[in-house]
Every structure is written in structure tokens, then in C-alpha cells.
């Protein structure tokens, strides 16, 4: 860690005003402190935004407004979230450990960086994300955890957040505040696919701060939703595959379906193609499988992760079949 200054922002305006080159916003620190310590990130100043007011409240439209400094644990345990957005509670609780969830903020969770082993090995491995143009050692290396969708020659890393998978499924909107004012971006558009510039991971501009997340009012498929995480041990491990799913039926036909996948791409993957294919159909195992296969038609497995395609198919099918069964 290079030496840095630390200051606690008094409010959002103060935080944004303090932004400058070399300055990083600090949330719970669960990812950034680790990255700084491992010399993967450098900062000359940290502006601590984790103590800014954080509340969870209903929006005018009947949705939910969540301040960025709300801790993951608090969000997961919130009665409104548990009742109306169970998929979000489940996704949050699937992530990390209780200690980390007590620390991690909503804003920080959205910005957490990949767990690619080669990204983490600053001294010994090549990584285009760390050092554009250096090369990618993951492509032919250990890539069991890596992307099957939306990857590029430059980068095959995945986004590790569980929460974001649920947010993608919920059509969440991210609220930002920066030197040029405030704006909102749908979570689905917030993270970038690597393309030729894997170092660019989000649409966040220099000095911009995530101030909150807004959830639309819960639809029927949201109140009947589930998150299933598949991993190498039963708890406290990153996802190989995760699925956020929600289903609404009428007369035995799908009226609304939401599917998002984690562990498959550099961003939480909303499976719109599969959703479209399912709407209006009876949620049979075969129909669900056919739909998710359509989504995964573009999947490009690497040397070590071909199993993810079948795993994603089966997990999505199981999640939606269970939901359909519960609603039948």
C-alpha cells in the first residue's frame, strides 16, 4: 500500500467535492482495502462514504430506495426486502460471510472487482484488466470460475457479486452523483463487458459516486422469486453459477418470468432471450430448458469451464421448475 490520506465525508456533496485524481471512495473496505494492500489498486486519498446516512425507504412509485451506504446485512434483514424482494435477501445472504456482510455497503458491492487469480497476482501474472495490453494468463490458465458469455480475447473475468445478480433480475436502477450532477443508470447497463477495454468495468465517470439503488415496485414474479448459488463449498465461496429467478403464472401459462445469471460474465447476466421464449408458455421442464438453451447459444466455454453451460441450464431449470411447482 502506498501512503494515503483518509477523510470521512460529511455528506454526499462533501464526498463528491473531495473527489479528484488519486482519490477513491471507501465503503466497507472489504474489497478495496484488500486490493490496496495487494498493490492492485493505488490511491493517494480515501474518502470514506460508509458512514453517510443510509436508509431504506419506499419510493413514491411503490418501489424501494436504498442508500449506497446501507450495509449488505442490514439490507438483507430489512422486513420490506424480505417480504417483497426475497430474491435480494437470498442473494445477499449467499454472498461472503456474516462479518463481510456487516461491513460491505451496497455501493461497494456493486463495484467489487473480479476474483480472477491472474488479476490478483500483480507480480507474477499478465492481466489486461490491470495492465492494458499485457496479455491474459487466464485464457489458457485456471479459468474454472471464468466467463462463458460476453467475454473477449482481452479478458474472460467474471463479476463476483451475488447482490448484483438479484439487482439485475429486479431491474434496479443505480443513482449516481458526480461533478456534472446526478444521473441514473439501470443496473443492467452499469457494468461493461470487456471488449477491447477490460480495464473499463463500469460506466462510472471520474469522481462519480454511487448514492443509491432504486428497486421498482415488486411484480408478481419478484415476490415469488428465488436465488440459488452453486459453489465449491457449501458456504463462503464465490459462485460457479448463480441464478436469480422469478415466475408468475396465469392459467398455467407464464405471464412474467425473470432470470439473471451470476458467474457467467463480466456483468450480472439478465437472460432476456430466455425470458422472451418462456412468456406465454406452460412452464414445463422442457420448455424452460429450451428457453435457457436459447440464451446460452452464444456461450463460449474456456479450457476449464465448459461444465458451466450444462450447470447453468440445469440450475435455471431447477429454480424455475421449483417456482412453478410452488405456484401451481
Amino acid at each position: 500500500m502506498m501512503p494515503f490520506g483518509y477523510v470521512r465525508a460529511t455528506d454526499r456533496a462533501d464526498a463528491v467535492a473531495r473527489a479528484g485524481s488519486g482519490t477513491r471512495f471507501l465503503g466497507g473496505g472489504t474489497n478495496l482495502v484488500d486490493l490496496l494492500r495487494q498493490n492492485m489498486e493505488q490511491a493517494s486519498n480515501l474518502v470514506d462514504v460508509s458512514r453517510l446516512d443510509g436508509s431504506i425507504r419506499e419510493s413514491h412509485g411503490g418501489g424501494l430506495l436504498i442508500d449506497a451506504s446501507v450495509r449488505n446485512a442490514a439490507l438483507a434483514a430489512h422486513p420490506l426486502v424480505r417480504r417483497r424482494y426475497p430474491v435480494l435477501t437470498r442473494a445477499l445472504l449467499a454472498g461472503a460471510s456474516a462479518q463481510i456482510r456487516n461491513m460491505a455497503t451496497v455501493g461497494g458491492n456493486i463495484l467489487q472487482r473480479t476474483r480472477c487469480l491472474y488479476f490478483y497476482d500483480v507480480d507474477g501474472a499478465r492481466c489486461n484488466k490491470r495492465q492494458p495490453g499485457a496479455g491474459c494468463d487466464a485464457r489458457e490458465g485456471f479459468n474454472r470460475y471464468h466467463a462463458i458469455l460476453g467475454a473477449s480475447d482481452q479478458c474472460v473475468a467474471t463479476h463476483p457479486s451475488d447482490m448484483c445478480v438479484a439487482l439485475a433480475m429486479l431491474d434496479a436502477v443505480i443513482h449516481l452523483s458526480g461533478p456534472d450532477g446526478e444521473r441514473s443508470v439501470p443496473l443492467a447497463d452499469f457494468h461493461a463487458l470487456p471488449n477491447a477495454t477490460p480495464q473499463v468495468e463500469t460506466v462510472l465517470k471520474q469522481g462519480e459516486l454511487i448514492t443509491g439503488v432504486e428497486l421498482p415496485p415488486p411484480s408478481d414474479a419478484v415476490t415469488h422469486s428465488e436465488y440459488r448459488k452453486v459453489r465449491d463449498r457449501s458456504s463462503y465461496a464465490f459462485a460457479l453459477i448463480s441464478v436469480a429467478g422469478g415466475l408468475a403464472l396465469a392459467d398455467g401459462r407464464v405471464t412474467e418470468v425473470r432470470i439473471a445469471l451470476g458467474g457467467v460474465a463480466a456483468k450480472p447476466w439478465r437472460a432476456r432471450r430466455a425470458e422472451t421464449a418462456l412468456v406465454g408458455r406452460a412452464p414445463s421442464r422442457d420448455a424452460i430448458l429450451a428457453a435457457i438453451r436459447e440464451e446460452l447459444v452464444d456461450a463460449r466455454p474456456l479450457s476449464g469451464n465448459a461444465f458451466k453451460i450444462g450447470l447453468a441450464e440445469r440450475t435455471v431449470t431447477a429454480v424455475l421448475t421449483d417456482l412453478a411447482g410452488a405456484r401451481a
Binding site: 487469480l117 507474477g124 501474472a125 494468463d137 485456471f142 463449498r233 457449501s234 458456504s235
Partner: peptide, 28 residues
């Protein structure tokens, strides 16, 4: 779950953290 990931291209061990080398957790 336990496996040390040795990258044979470089002779370098890649799983150098307890997040990457999976020892059993309570739930296991």
C-alpha cells in the same frame, strides 16, 4: 474441495489465498 492450483506454464502457485484454497467451512 482442496486443491492447490499450480500453473504449470510458470511453476507459479495461483491459489494463494484462503478464498481460493477451499478448506471446509462450518456448514461443510
Amino acid at each position: 474441495a482442496e486443491e492447490t492450483l499450480l500453473d504449470e506454464r510458470t511453476g507459479r502457485i495461483m491459489s494463494t489465498s484462503l478464498a481460493d484454497y477451499h478448506v471446509p467451512v462450518h456448514l461443510d
